[in-house]
């Protein structure tokens, strides 16, 4: 799959999701829960009800795979960069935590998502959150300028993940922290999913093997690379994506094949630090 084709498909897929308000509601699917479904998924992956209630309505599309904010233990006054901020869910949670002196910048390449995010920020009066249309492989942020980089189930979608880590390293101040959650693989995916461009949007086809993912973070210069948590990624969450559901239906995939895929996909939460004295 060509890089450009991947980018285009990912953008279009997420633009569609932004407009629908949830990753659900495909004609082939019966879940149709809209925002409620987003909330249920989010509770399942570790957000508390208080957190869900504290963000603008419509910003939680149930697309994440973990809760980097709880992990990042953000401090008052921190400058936070969210890679692939989508409708802004994690940005708003982060903004509540860093307070008035802090600031949060969300970068996403899907205009429809950013418009949603910006609307929410305005409506709910968030003064310390800003959104930029940008690419996570070419982060539009100055060197050594942010305290924390967060990203929630996004880097797996990038056709050049090593570059994303290198860019995150560059943007961080010395001593800055990277806190990401993502989908990785324990074994290679069967060809019917790996070759599916639709599977990309459901976060699966683009995922790297776990060691390769962690290796990419180390290669960028990060130290203290720690996996905080590993959870089997429920296949239902992937199947929740309309495009993945469609693949399952049209390709006539058996329950055994689904089980096989499900066992090889996990979500991980990783913490890493940019060493002091590096720039």
């Amino acid at each position: 799959m060509k890089e450009e084709e991947v980018r285009k498909t990912v953008r279009e897929g997420y633009a569609r999701i932004a407009e629908q308000g949830s990753s659900c509601c495909a004609p082939a699917s019966s879940c149709c829960g809209g925002t409620d479904l987003g909330q249920n998924i989010s509770r399942d992956i570790g957000y508390t009800q208080e957190e869900l209630d504290a963000v603008p309505e419509g910003s939680n599309l149930g697309l994440g795979c973990g809760n980097p904010v709880a992990l990042a233990s953000l401090r008052e006054g921190d400058t936070v960069l969210d890679l692939g901020s989508g409708a802004g869910f994690d940005c708003f949670l982060a903004a509540n935590q860093v307070g008035e002196q802090g600031r949060v910048i969300g970068v996403d390449m899907t205009p429809e998502m950013l418009e949603k995010a910006r609307e929410s920020a305005r409506r709910d009066g968030y003064e310390n959150v800003e959104f930029r249309l940008g690419e996570i492989e070419n982060i539009p942020v100055a060197d050594n300028s942010v305290d924390v980089v967060i990203s929630n189930c996004v880097i797996n979608l990038s056709p050049d993940k090593r570059r994303v880590f290198t860019e995150a390293f560059r943007a961080l101040k010395p001593g800055g922290r990277l806190m990401v959650s993502d989908i990785v693989l324990l074994k290679e995916l069967p060809a019917f999913i790996a070759n599916s461009i639709e599977g990309y949007i459901g976060c699966v086809s683009g995922a790297l093997m776990r060691d390769e993912y962690l290796g990419g973070i180390k290669a960028a210069g990060f130290q203290d690379v720690k996996t905080i948590d590993e959870t089997r990624f429920p296949f239902e969450l992937m199947a929740n994506d309309p495009t993945v559901a469609a693949v399952i239906e049209t390709e006539g995939i058996s329950p055994e094949q689904i089980e096989e895929v499900s066992g090889s996909v996990i979500s991980i939460k990783v913490h890493a630090a940019k060493p002091n004295g590096t720039a």
């Binding site: 400058t79 600031r103 690419e135 942020v141 100055a142 060197d143 942010v146």
Partner: peptide
Amino acid sequence: MKRELMDILACPMCKGTL
């Protein structure tokens, strides 16, 4: 876009000041 956030923005291509 708020003016205060200009200081941490950079050109995505060459990382120059905007």
